[in-house]
Amino acid sequence: MSPMTSLSASQRLQAFANPARFMALSARLLAPLWVVSLGLLCVGLYYALVASPPDYQQGETVRIMYVHVPSAWLAMFGYSLMAAASAVALIFRHPLADLCAKSAAPIGAAFTFLALVTGALWGKPMWGAWWVWDARLTSVLILFFLYLGYMALWAAIEEPARAARAAAVLALVGAINVPIIRYSVVWWNTLHQPASVFRMDGPTIAPEMLLPLALMALGFTFFFVTLLLVRMRAEILRHRVRTLRLARAAASAED
């Protein structure tokens, strides 16, 4: 950690995205992002529900996949984004990175929740049980706990700067642990379950199913980014409200 290089790097980053410039840039981006994400989702829904065939094995329940798989993808994408933003926040002290990590958490948690519930709704007709302790479901459940813990830590510490640094440490420790937890759960699963368990992912996926899946995944990803911008803008304003209130308190103390 040489102070000279990190200083210049952080200065360059600050010039690249200070809060005021971010507000201006995101304000211009929001409308097109809404149009693209909602458009993709509408087309995706049409293909998912109407224009794609039922699976020869799973029948109509395969349509659950078009919501479930993109949610699971965004659950992992959200946590990776959070961890990357936390790393940037800790190394470069970038003010927007903290806000990015904080804003990504509730969106990621919501999609993790969606992945879990749709997984249960898929499991009931396919496996005959709402919940099976399969390696994938279990590790997504643990990911959900990690999201909740991260959000609880933000909520528990009152001072924003302190909360941001503590939460960033937690997100990074979580990112280091996620592969270990994932590996241990898979290992545990092979130890306990017979090999004849029905697998969700077939060897190949038909192209007519790939199109709705890709459309929905892309649409949900754009939706994620759009919401992330909205929430980051709200966080910047929240910061502004705080400074204004502090200034008011200081001014009234002077009088």
Binding site: G149, L153, V185, W188
Partner: peptide, 15 residues
């Protein structure tokens, strides 16, 4: 809160 944060990290040890 500390228990909630740490418990997921304990899972590999438990397994």
């Amino acid at each position: 809160l500390a228990s909630l944060l740490v418990l997921p990290f304990y899972i590999p040890v438990l397994i």
